[in-house]
Computed example of a mutant assay.
Amino acid sequence: MTDSTPAQPDEAAQNAALQKAVIVGMQPGQPDHVLREALRYAKLLGSPLVVAHVDVTRFVTFEDPDGYVHSAPIDLNLEAGVAEFEDVQKAAEAMLADADVVWTARQLVGDPALAIKQLAGKLDAQLIVVGTRKRGLGESIREFFTGSVAARLSHRQHRPVLVIPQGEEVPDDQKDVWSE
């Protein structure tokens, strides 16, 4: 997948500078502690940090031999993915402003697990960090059909995947874990 900001020739140079990165999958409204943990590991490993947002409203049409990805929208509302990426960038900028680590934000497209896997391959990432999904019936149905991004990542590539809980602990005696 590709960064939405750099031009095609700049991607190779940018990827070279981001080798051995820690990648964190982010979405708007995600708890801050997911990014904080990714930052902590990036510092511990002496690695750059890549904040990745996956626009699931677009899909990959083809990829050039040099790695540049061309995509097309599932529907005509292109602003939704752009707005989400801007929200993720703003949240990352606010949290990482004083961080002593090289970081960048990337907009990916398509299936989240496959997009993050491909980015991790391009960057030879040391670690992938993702948050758990929110509790609730809607999220349970979505996961039933699409599967857990963390589980799919852990089964489809060799890099370690760190899964950060949302922060909403469920008591041990609560039978229905996914109730809202």
Results as ranks from 00 to 15, higher is better:
T2C: 12
S4Y: 07
D10T: 01
E11I: 14
E11M: 14
E11Y: 03
A12D: 05
Q14A: 14
A16V: 01
L18I: 07
Q19G: 02
K20W: 02
V22A: 03
V22C: 07
V24G: 06
G25Y: 04
M26P: 02
L35I: 09
Y41H: 13
K43C: 02
L44H: 04
S47I: 04
P48D: 10
P48R: 12
P48M: 12
L49D: 08
A52Q: 07
V54E: 05
F62L: 08
F62E: 07
G67P: 07
Y68P: 01
I74N: 11
L76T: 11
G81T: 05
F85V: 01
F85R: 00
V88W: 06
Q89P: 00
D98E: 15
A99D: 06
A99I: 09
W103G: 01
T104S: 13
T104Y: 01
D111G: 02
I116E: 05
K117Q: 14
A120H: 10
A120K: 03
L123Y: 06
D124C: 00
T132Y: 04
L137Q: 11
G138Y: 00
E143H: 02
T146Y: 13
R152H: 13
H155R: 13
H158K: 09
P160H: 04
Q166S: 14
Q166I: 10
G167L: 07
G167Q: 06
E168C: 00
Q174G: 01
K175Q: 11
K175D: 13
D176T: 13
D176N: 14
V177L: 13
W178V: 04
W178H: 12
S179A: 14
